[in-house]
Design a protein around this nucleic acid. Structure first.
Lengths: 131, 131
DNA sequence: TCGGATACCGAATAACTTTTCGGTATGAAC
DNA sequence: GTTCATACCGAAAAGTTATTCGGTATCCGA
């Protein structure tokens, strides 16, 4: 297993939250499971922009943190389902709030991204000089 | 300037939010500014676990996104102050919610971290097998 | 027996972020 | 003129995370 070189501050709530659901695809996966998409292959079809491997890795991390539970059906077809735990459910309103904030500020952020590729000095408007 | 190889989905609110304030020290910095700590050197004293360079870089990013404004005093001593914009203020309740979630689930997460360094199979309790 | 759908995993690589290091500049005070 | 505290920046190194690649295994049905 990979061993961190830089210590994390696991007393800071934000650090803990980011560790549990702050990775690139975890919010998508949590949201999809909440919408009833439960199997890895289904999740992969839903989130086609990343690989199945990535989804599986994130799922297994979410399981270890207790955000989702895994249900294995031994019959045919080979089938596994993931469900949100209460802890997982409690993340949903936070994701919704993050999403709402992002959409509200979407224009400003996209504009900055454009400025950056055109001319950096256009940003100087953001600072003021006082005597 | 660094140019991304992997495209970002700037239509997803969560991605946007994470881009703006999802970096390692940005929540600390935003929170500190909200508490009235405004100058880079003060912020560095407050957040002593990282370097001044890091704080300056994050601050300049926050300025470009419009989260904080920069006020330059040309007199002596050389002095600069950062303030939250309304957009910056609107991040505070989200940070508070993230922090609260993390603290509420702190024990569970810390326990997982301990399990991981002792025995990985202790985690198998999280999945169930069904017929 | 082989192919197809499912699920999973190790390891290497690529991409990205954070940190460190060494430098510039200002104005006051000694 | 040297030193000090402030603020800032470029570039390399170190660290972390995401992605790709190639493999295993199961069970069914053709």
């Amino acid at each position: 297993m990979y061993e961190r070189k830089i210590k994390e501050d696991l007393d800071c709530g934000i650090t803990i939250a980011m560790k549990v659901f702050g990775a690139k695809w975890k919010p998508c996966i949590i949201d999809a499971i909440a919408r009833g998409i439960r199997r890895p292959s289904e999740l992969h079809r839903e989130i086609a922009t990343t690989s199945l491997r990535v989804i599986e890795m994130q799922l297994s991390e979410l399981v270890t943190y207790g955000v989702v539970t895994k249900k294995i059906y031994t019959g045919f077809p080979l089938c596994v389902e993931y469900f949100l735990t209460p802890m997982g459910e409690s993340i949903l309103p936070i994701l919704e709030q993050l999403n709402a904030w992002g959409l509200k500020n979407k224009d400003a952020v996209q504009q900055v991204n454009n400025y950056q590729s055109i001319e950096k000095d256009a940003l100087s408007q953001y600072s003021s000089i006082c005597q």
